[in-house]
């Protein structure tokens, strides 16, 4: 039976189910106890699983992740919540130099089944240090997996898989999606990490996105349809390992691509996908590859400015036209 639940609830359910199913799953983070976490995701988990497994930490991001790495090396499956993705910068050493590398450099003797959950993204007027999408930073680090679900169904199934994964996973939650509701099965399920989903089949242009930007892309696809453009919409869901097959097959068919992300454009997720398309699909192209991303400035606090520098339905619609009509 499915019921309507929010993205927040889906994430909480995934954590609770994995914690009930495996006593090696522990949960660490700042204010995740009675307070319920900065975004209310962990409400009720302390009462349910106790302070031995829902462990409230001091404000020490690098060492919280480090403790997660150590516990993971010694047989546990820690979930670490970093309150805002912006603060993951303080933990880059433990993520990049430790979590990502330990299985390789210690030649498989140890592994790090760690999940780092990070609320990301703008839209709430929180300003430059509480609104970023630093997703692409992690794509350049072999040894990490990066997941960024756009809806409650995928959030739950992918988080459960992330917690079970024997490798470190950066799990990016978009904070504007926490109240987004969707039908989600009551029965436990897992979704495979590394699989994109084709939400709309189309023939004219591949629209590739994920996270909150996926919702804007969906709205833009509907507008494009009215203008007679058939859009194939792909939700990446996992950024690393990227589902290159789905992207390549789609672009070979449509010959055009628009890539939409909430992070900045330079060296972003879109840059990586554009490079992939140019390596694998060039002879099939009959239009452009266009990127839509945040403007090249820190996220301003003023909400009108913030909205203006982020991707929007209008910007995506314009990009679709640019990709399609460039040779007319």
């Amino acid at each position: 039976m499915a019921r309507l639940i929010t993205y927040r609830e889906a994430i909480r359910e995934a954590i609770a189910e994995e914690m009930s199913g495996n006593d090696k799953v522990i949960f660490l983070g700042e204010d995740i106890g009675a307070y319920g976490g900065a975004f209310g995701v962990s409400k009720g988990l302390l009462e349910r699983f106790g302070a031995g497994r829902v462990i409230e930490t001091p404000i020490s991001e690098n060492s919280i992740v480090g403790v997660g790495v150590g516990a993971a090396m010694a047989g546990f499956c820690p979930i670490v919540e970093i309150m805002f993705m912006d603060f993951i910068t303080l933990a880059m050493d433990q993520i990049v130099n430790h979590a990502a590398k330990i299985h390789y450099i210690y030649s498989g003797q140890l592994n790090v089944p760690l999940t780092v959950r990070v609320p990301a993204g703008a839209g709430k007027g929180y300003g430059a240090s509480h609104s970023q999408s630093l997703d692409c930073w992690f794509l350049n680090v072999p040894g990490l997996k990066v997941v960024a679900p756009s809806n409650p169904y995928s959030a739950k199934g992918l988080l459960k898989s992330a917690i079970k994964d024997p490798n470190p996973v950066i799990f990016i939650e978009n904070k504007m999606l926490y109240d987004f509701k969707q039908e989600v099965p009551e029965e436990p399920y897992y979704l495979e990490i590394g699989k994109a989903e084709t939400l709309l089949a189309g023939t004219d242009v591949s629209l590739i996105s994920y996270g909150r930007a996926l919702h804007l892309s969906l709205a833009a696809a509907k507008i494009a349809k009215e203008a007679g453009i058939s859009v194939e919409l792909i939700d990446l869901a996992t950024l690393k390992p990227l589902d290159t097959g789905t992207i390549i097959n789609s672009v070979k068919k449509t010959g055009k691509a628009v890539i939409v992300e909430e992070g900045h454009k330079t060296s972003g997720v879109g840059a990586e996908i554009a490079a992939l398309i140019s390596e694998e699909c060039l002879e099939y192209m009959n239009g452009k590859v266009v990127r839509v991303a945040a403007e090249e400035c820190p996220i301003p606090s003023a909400q009108k400015l913030e909205a203006a520098i982020l991707p929007s339905v209008e910007k995506i619609t314009a990009a679709i036209k640019k990709a399609c009509f460039s040779y007319e």
Binding site: I26, G52, R53, I55, N62, S63, I64, V65, G66, V67, G68, V69, G70, A71, A72, M73, A74, G75, F76, P78, D93, Q94, N97, H98, I102, Y106, L110
Partner: peptide, 25 residues
Amino acid sequence: FYGTNGIVGGGIPVATGIALSIKLR
């Protein structure tokens, strides 16, 4: 032996996490 470490201070939180695992076990 859970590793030498190229990052000065990098092993200290890792060891602390290993100690947490001992406590939990």
